Amino acid sequence: MNTTPVFRSLLAAAILALALASGCSSEPASSASATPDAQTQAAEAHWTDALSTLDTDQVRERIAAAKGRPVLVCLWSVNCPACVQELPVLEELADQYAPDDLEVLLLNLDGNRAVVRGFFKEYEPAATVLLVEPSVADAFQATYIPKLVLYDASGEKVFDDSGFYPKGMLEALIQRASGE
């Protein structure tokens, strides 16, 4: 088969897109993990409250409680390459904005506190990390992750999409959601 360079480029892009999409479904990660050592268990105690598993109603209550400031929500998994790429951007935003100006919620779909805590073993996240039940992914229509949803200060959804977004684009959306 004689193909043109443009066709080969499009085919390669399509194959890459399928590979990324299949690696980032909203299915929970495997809960199999090694037994944590004493240091990990001590650090785990610090995360106990933050990593309680929330259902859809509890997540919606958390978002509603933030009225008066934008809320950026990300549904993610430790096994999703695009999520791992997006998290540092979200961490920078959580660090950049005062808590009264923006709340960043990282809703983890893995369902395993030790897996999530192990992911953040090098640092304490600036954003709020919450474990959520699988039903939360359905409620947010998160077929693919990372799934980003931005609510403005009045609690209205102003952005809802899956995929990686660079910091500059998210900053522009947050500024608009803040009314700036």
Rank of each mutant, 00 (worst) to 15 (best):
M1E: 04
N2F: 01
T4M: 07
V6S: 09
S9H: 10
A12P: 13
A13I: 07
A13W: 08
A14E: 15
I15D: 14
I15Q: 15
L18Y: 13
A19E: 15
A19N: 12
L20M: 15
A21D: 14
G23N: 15
G23L: 10
E27R: 03
P28Y: 05
S30C: 08
S30K: 04
A32E: 15
S33V: 10
S33I: 04
A34H: 01
A34Y: 05
P36F: 08
P36M: 00
Q39G: 08
T40F: 11
Q41T: 11
E44S: 15
E44K: 10
A45R: 06
H46T: 06
W47C: 09
D49I: 04
A50G: 12
A50V: 06
A50D: 03
L51F: 03
L51K: 12
S52R: 14
D55S: 01
D55Q: 00
D55W: 08
Q58E: 05
R60P: 08
E61T: 05
E61H: 06
E61D: 07
A64G: 01
A65I: 08
A66E: 11
K67P: 04
G68Y: 11
G68I: 12
R69S: 03
L72K: 01
C74R: 03
L75C: 13
W76Y: 04
W76Q: 06
S77H: 09
S77D: 09
V78T: 15
C80S: 10
C80H: 07
A82D: 14
C83G: 06
Q85E: 08
E86T: 12
E86R: 09
L87I: 14
E91D: 14
E92T: 11
A94I: 03
D95N: 10
D95H: 11
Q96I: 05
A98H: 12
A98T: 12
P99Q: 02
P99N: 09
D100S: 11
E103S: 12
V104Y: 00
V104M: 00
V104T: 08
L105I: 01
L105K: 00
L106P: 01
L106M: 13
L106W: 07
L109C: 06
L109S: 05
L109H: 06
G111R: 04
G111T: 08
V115P: 12
V116T: 12
F120R: 09
Y123Q: 13
P125A: 00
P125I: 04
A127C: 05
T128I: 14
V129T: 04
V129S: 01
L130I: 14
V132D: 07
P134V: 12
S135Y: 13
S135A: 15
V136C: 14
A137R: 05
A137C: 07
A137N: 07
F140Q: 00
A142Q: 01
A142W: 06
I145M: 10
P146N: 00
K147N: 06
L148P: 00
L148A: 06
V149Q: 10
V149H: 11
L150P: 02
L150F: 00
L150I: 03
A153Q: 06
A153L: 01
A153K: 06
E156Y: 01
V158G: 14
V158Y: 14
F159Q: 07
S162E: 02
F164N: 01
F164D: 05
P166T: 02
P166S: 08
P166M: 02
G168P: 06
G168Q: 05
M169W: 09
E171T: 12
L173K: 15
L173Q: 13
I174R: 02
R176H: 15
R176G: 03
G179T: 14
G179P: 08
G179D: 13
